[in-house]
């Protein structure tokens, strides 16, 4: 498909830069967790950057996005500020959620980001509800739900697919198939002919693409978001990719054989975009400078996050609920 699609050099260069930013963010986040500077669960998106980037490039600021536990990439691709995100990961007062959410709950409603989510597939049910609100209010927005292959075995996921079809909701479902459900190979716990067949069974137009080819993702997302905006109801994109790291920053992923991992990592979405740009005359120095710029942007975000103030203790009791004092 990418043969027929002929994006501009500038567009691909932009996609490349976004992928670099996501990579740099999660390279740092994973290491910072392993070094004990962050707490809790940190799920790195490394290796999957082309999907959030290619889809995100086709979304408008007013569009809604719901994400899942591996959510940093979706937020950055939707335009979230890496400094506010990093402050959230560091649990600081002016993080996106005031330090109350952390990595698994990064959200920015001003940008339509309904949040990463700590429960597999729950974000998908929120997404169909957001779409229902859009429809009820007659708004001109679409909703994108990102989720993993593991989610395809949860009841709410299957309910939500049916729901989106029944109510003809403006939802783009994006399944990021990174091969693993936490630490278990998804194929080993999944019956039937696969993810695409499941989506199709609900009457939702569904297609598979190479999720490590940012141009292919961009092309598919452009076409599918157009279809959703035109009011034809939900569509489903199955993007095949590979998770380079363990399920979490603290998971070394030893349940995978080394050959499989190195084969997966050899198919690097960033290297592929870089090669595409290089082949069209973008200078190696320029591409290296892009990388350095992304790393520097994250380095600056980290230093701002490290020196940012902690939340005031009183906010422990704010935003629980209006009625009744927390006790």
């Amino acid at each position: 498909m990418s043969e027929a699609y002929d994006p501009s050099l500038e567009r691909v260069h932009g996609l490349y830069a976004t992928m670099l930013l996501i990579r740099a963010f999660d390279e740092h986040a994973g290491q910072a967790r392993r070094d004990g500077h962050l707490r809790g669960s940190v799920h790195e998106y490394i290796g999957q950057e082309a999907i959030a980037t290619g889809v995100g490039a086709n979304l408008l600021k007013r569009d809604y996005v719901s994400s899942y536990h591996r959510g940093h990439g979706h937020c950055l691709a939707k335009g979230a500020d890496p400094v506010s995100m990093m402050k959230e990961l560091y649990g600081k007062a002016d993080g996106l959620c005031g330090g109350k959410g952390g990595s698994m709950h990064v959200a920015d409603f001003a940008l339509g980001i309904l949040g990463a989510n700590g429960v597999v597939a729950d974000g998908v049910t929120l997404a169909v509800g957001a779409a229902q609100a859009v429809k009820l209010r007659g708004e001109d927005r679409i909703v994108t739900a990102f989720f993993g292959d593991g989610a395809m075995n949860r009841g709410p996921m299957l309910e939500a697919l049916n729901w989106a079809r029944v109510f003809d909701l403006p939802v783009l479902f994006v399944c990021e198939d990174n091969t693993y459900s936490d630490k278990t190979r998804t194929a080993s716990v999944t019956g039937g002919p696969g993810i695409l067949a499941r989506a199709s069974a609900f009457g939702i137009p569904a297609e598979s693409i190479d999720g490590n080819d940012v141009i292919a993702v961009d092309e598919a997302a452009a076409r599918l978001t157009r279809a959703v905006r035109s009011g034809q109801g939900p569509v489903f994109l199955h993007a095949k990719t590979y998770r380079w790291r363990g399920h979490l920053a603290l998971d070394p992923g030893r349940y995978r054989d080394a050959q499989e991992v190195s084969r997966g990592m050899a198919d690097d979405p960033i290297a592929r975009a870089k090669a595409w740009l290089f082949a069209r005359g973008v200078k190696a120095e320029s591409l290296a400078a892009d990388r350095e710029a992304a790393v520097e942007r994250i380095r600056s975000a980290v230093s701002q996050a490290e020196s940012a103030p902690w939340p005031r203790p009183e906010i422990l009791f704010t935003d629980v609920q209006d009625l009744g004092a927390p006790t």
Binding site: A133, N162, W163
Partner: peptide
């Protein structure tokens, strides 16, 4: 039918959709 919605027997999504819709300007 768009304001009094007959749903499938899908309690997870009845609830999840209500939450998503509540986050996006409606009062389900």
């Amino acid at each position: 039918k768009s304001r009094v919605v007959d749903t499938p027997i899908s309690e997870s999504t009845i609830m999840g959709a209500a939450i998503g819709a509540a986050m996006c300007g409606t009062r389900p």
